[in-house]
Simulated scan of single mutants.
Amino acid sequence: MATYKLTYFNLRGLAEITRIMFNIAKVPFEDIRLEYPPKEFAELKAAGKFAANLNRVPILDYNGVQIGQSKAIERFVAKKLGFMGTNDIEEAQVDMMCEHVRDIRIKYNEIRFNKSGEELEAAKKNFIVNDLGVWLEKLENVVPNSIYSVGDKLSLADINIYLLILDFFTPSEEVEKAKENCPKLKAIANNVAEVAKDWLASRPVTMF
């Protein structure tokens, strides 16, 4: 039987998509959570525990083999658990949708990590009010009229859409307005929230 050990900080961050997949698929895994802000991390890093990911986390141990890079981990687990579509075309489409979502998140993170203070707050609001809706409507035009973004079963793409629509942005009237013309994206996100409701209700409460 395969064994999975996922190590990350006690945050949702770069490990939450993988945790959600394990829980939806009801596949046991060891959810190793390091303190945040980091304390034990430096000691474990010095001991070479995270060398496969260039001394960073998350890191997945699969049957004793270490795999680094959060997106590589997500795709590996998605393939193992059946979340990458049912054929090569669907696999490429799942990958495409995940990259579309990542593009939107990168646009916002470029603001979050390169500005501070009042300038940061103004830039974040400007993005949400003027840009987010435009990006989401582009994504809305790509997905089919279904609760699944690819094929006829839940995929890694759907979980990425869930994170974008319901988890990534701090809830506000402006965020809701940006989503108002995206009923298909909201249906996909709500379906994931329903399927994963046991995990979402029981997971540790973290700052992000």
Rank of each mutant, 00 (worst) to 15 (best):
E99R: 06
Y108S: 02
C98F: 06
V94M: 08
G117R: 09
F113T: 05
I73Q: 13
R112S: 09
G85S: 04
R75F: 05
T86Q: 07
R105Q: 13
E99D: 03
E99W: 10
N87H: 07
K107G: 05
Q93I: 03
K80G: 08
F76N: 01
E74K: 03
I111Y: 10
E74N: 09
M96D: 15
F83S: 02
F113W: 05
E74M: 08
R105E: 10
R102A: 15
I73G: 06
C98E: 12
I106N: 02
G117P: 07
K79T: 15
I111Q: 12
G117S: 09
R75M: 10
L81Q: 01
M97P: 11
R105Y: 11
N87W: 04
G82A: 00
D95R: 08
G85Y: 00
K79R: 09
E91A: 11
A78G: 08
K115R: 10
D88F: 06
V94P: 02
V94T: 10
C98M: 06
R112Q: 02
Q93E: 13
D103Y: 15
N114K: 12
L81N: 10
G117D: 08
T86S: 02
M96P: 14
F76R: 07
M97F: 10
S116L: 10
M97H: 13
I73D: 09
K79G: 14
T86Y: 01
I111K: 12
D95M: 03
S116I: 13
K80D: 02
E74Q: 06
I104V: 09
I111G: 09
R105W: 07
